[in-house]
Amino acid sequence: MPSERHPAARYVVTGTDTDVGKTVFAAALAQALGAAYWKPVQAGTDEAGQGDADVVARLTDSSRVTVLPGAYHLATPCSPHRAAEIDGVGIDPSRLDLPAHDGPLVVEGAGGVLVPLDRQRTYADQFARWGLPVVIVARTALGTINHTLLSIEALRARGISVHGVAFIGDSVPDSEETIAAMGAVRRLGRLPHLDHLERAALAIAFARGFDLADFAA
């Protein structure tokens, strides 16, 4: 794993849907870049009581990756807009401003690009406000072409730069190539499903599946 950091590398990681693997990819990217990681809104936790930031901390080296505190930690495991309502919390847009952090940064959204933050705004609207390039994480499974192309359209309709698509799962070259061609988007690489998801294995899989130069600036 290279020791240098990439100060110009600042990305939003989003997905075509929930549970596509964007937290695992975000951890791998943050580790490779030596970046800070920020999940602004966490809604619910897993069976072990961990949120996405906890997963990233477990899968990265703290000497390279700084896990920044999120703005909101909601108890209810559902869409942030509804979780906030159930928890009696109002999501203040000013608290979602990018953290004051010099150097590389990986910001993780929630679910897909049109997941609501409240009854008026979606994550895509927030991405436009941030002005960072977006990496879309997509499954290679059936349905991914439709989901990914729709995500690309939704982002570009808001003037958001789509840096590329990172695939998760078994190799399905035709689907990956079709998305890249029809979406006019960069095919960044692919992470396979790992039998044992741990830090070293993830770092190796990222190095094999992606070219770090594609994220250097």
Rank of each mutant, 00 (worst) to 15 (best):
G70K: 00
I86N: 04
P80F: 01
I145P: 06
A184S: 15
V107H: 09
A124C: 05
Q42T: 09
V106G: 08
A181E: 13
R199L: 14
P133D: 05
R58A: 14
A36T: 06
I136Q: 03
G209Q: 05
G143V: 08
V67I: 00
T45R: 15
H147L: 06
S161H: 15
G34M: 02
P7H: 00
P69T: 05
A57W: 04
V165C: 07
D195M: 14
A48W: 13
Q42C: 02
A71Q: 10
L74C: 01
I152A: 10
H73P: 04
G109P: 03
A75H: 15
A128F: 00
H193Q: 14
F127R: 02
V137H: 01
S175E: 11
L33Y: 04
P93F: 06
L98G: 00
L155P: 07
V12W: 01
A180Y: 11
P104A: 03
S171F: 12
S79G: 11
D170R: 15
R64T: 02
V162T: 03
V137M: 11
G143W: 08
A32N: 06
D46V: 14
G112A: 05
A35F: 04
E108D: 00
P2F: 13
P93C: 06
A27I: 04
E198R: 12
V41Y: 02
G159F: 12
R129V: 14
Q126W: 14
T76H: 09
A141K: 13
A27H: 09
V106H: 11
A75M: 14
V56R: 09
A128S: 05
S175A: 15
H6N: 07
H81L: 11
A216K: 11
I160N: 08
G164W: 14
K39C: 05
Q50T: 00
Q42D: 04
T178E: 12
R10K: 13
V56W: 06
P192I: 01
H147I: 08
V115E: 03
S175G: 08
V65R: 04
V55W: 07
E176D: 12
Q42M: 10
L98Q: 03
D195Q: 15
P99Q: 10
R95L: 14
L68A: 03
T66R: 12
V67Y: 02
V107M: 04
H196Y: 12
P7G: 00
P192M: 10
P40N: 00
N146V: 01
V56P: 04
A207S: 07
V56L: 02
I160E: 01
L59Q: 01
L29R: 02
F25Q: 03
G88T: 07
I160M: 06
R156S: 09
I160D: 04
L149K: 02
A32C: 06
G34F: 04
V107L: 07
V113F: 06
L188W: 10
I152T: 05
A83R: 06
A124Y: 04
A203N: 12
F210Y: 06
Q120F: 13
L132M: 10
D174P: 05
S171T: 14
G49S: 07
A216N: 11
L105D: 05
G131E: 07
V56C: 07
N146A: 10
I160L: 02
A213N: 11
A57V: 00
A71N: 09
A110S: 15
S151H: 10
V55D: 09
H101C: 15
Q42E: 12
R208H: 12
L149R: 08
V113Y: 03
L202W: 08
A83H: 01
L194D: 05
L117H: 01
S62I: 01
A71W: 00
